[in-house]
């Protein structure tokens, strides 16, 4: 992480200045990814039986919704050049609170949802506050908080699931808006739209990007970077909580094991989607649409590979290769852009 400077190849917006915006779009990460998605989807649809069946489309779409939300949660903190290993733990903790509120306290669904989401944001606040106060990298702080959040949750719940939720919760998870479209996917699309607006037009959103791109410059221009970083972590917590509730809706129960031991199962989708989508780990740039496309690509590939029966055990290696190839391709593209832009 000390190489943050070296990681950033082109200052945003400066290098490809001479290129037409059309050219930039064509060489953009999102465009490349979209083409790739269309190609793979078309190939699978033509060659694999059942890939385009309503059930298959429905389950892939729903999974894309959940993975994208997890990816967005991580993206919100990657903006600052930090990361949050506790996204899974926050998601599970919020989901368990959600379940407890409804099943034990008898709180109605529409009240429990905002409470659980706010709880996620407050866990994010704990992370952000600790990171800013200690000045220690968020990796180590969230490594610790992931153990603590998850440990306390298991201790309190005794690892027991809440499966007596109001029937609306499960009905929502199984609902079909159109044949083949899950409302979970629609929620994610709506959140994506909100985030695009947020980063582009709101003051706070722009401050997040500025603080991530160059903390000192942002500080000089009057941005209180400490507060902005705390806000980023809160946004992460909030989105992680939404993802936790989405999983709860799909499962129809709040289950402590839904993100694995310490919530670690979420880490791969959390990083894969934004990084494939072109979010820079060094901060300062987000790609909301890229994250959505990244999650889409992963799920189409996974689903296709499962249908092709390449063997469940090789899928993991395949996903790893894909991540590697994606970042290398992105790197090549940036070098190409830099050379073209500089001439």
């Amino acid at each position: 992480m000390a190489h943050a400077g070296a990681d950033r190849p082109i200052p945003p917006g400066s290098a490809p200045r001479r290129m037409s915006s059309g050219m930039r779009l064509l060489l953009g990460n999102e465009f490349g990814l979209a083409v790739l998605i269309l190609l793979t989807a078309a190939t699978f649809a033509l060659t694999l039986d059942g890939f385009t069946s309503p059930f298959s489309v429905y389950t892939i779409g729903r999974q894309i919704g959940i993975d994208t939300m997890i990816g967005l949660a991580m993206m919100a903190v990657i903006v600052t050049g930090g990361l949050d290993l506790s996204v899974g733990a926050i998601g599970v903790c919020s989901a368990m609170l959600f379940g407890w509120l409804m099943q034990v306290m008898g709180v109605p669904v529409l009240v429990a949802v905002p409470l659980a989401v706010l709880f996620g944001a407050s866990l994010g606040f704990v992370n952000g506050f600790t990171v800013v106060m200690s000045g220690v990298h968020s990796f180590i702080i969230t490594l610790a908080s992931m153990s603590i959040f998850f440990g306390v949750m298991i201790f309190l719940t005794k690892a027991a699931a809440f499966n007596g939720l109001p029937p609306q919760v499960q009905a929502f998870g199984k609902m079909r808006v159109l044949p083949g479209i899950s409302p979970l996917l629609l929620i994610t699309v709506a959140v994506c739209a909100a985030l695009v607006v947020f980063y582009r037009y709101s003051t706070l959103g722009r401050q997040m990007l500025a603080a991530g791109a160059n903390a000192r410059a942002a500080e000089l221009s009057g941005i209180r970077t400490g507060r902005v970083i705390v806000a980023c972590h809160m946004l992460t917590g909030l989105l992680a909580a939404i993802a936790g509730l989405m999983v709860t809706a799909r499962t129809g129960a709040a289950v402590p094991s839904m993100a694995g031991q310490l919530g670690q199962d979420w880490l791969l989708p959390a990083f894969l989607a934004p990084v494939l989508g072109g979010t820079l780990l060094s901060g300062g740039r987000v790609s909301v649409i890229g994250t959505l496309l990244g999650a889409t690509f992963i799920n189409i590939m996974t689903s296709g590979l499962l249908l092709m029966r390449v063997g469940e055990f090789w899928i993991l290696a395949f996903l790893g290769m894909m991540l590697l190839i994606a970042v290398l391709a992105d790197r090549t593209r940036q070098i190409f852009l830099t050379s073209r832009g500089m001439i």
Binding site: L316, A317, L319, G320, M321, L323
Partner: peptide, 10 residues
């Protein structure tokens, strides 16, 4: 992270 998946996958 990619290495983790690849080595574990192999």
């Amino acid at each position: 992270l990619a290495g983790l998946q690849i080595f574990k996958g192999i």
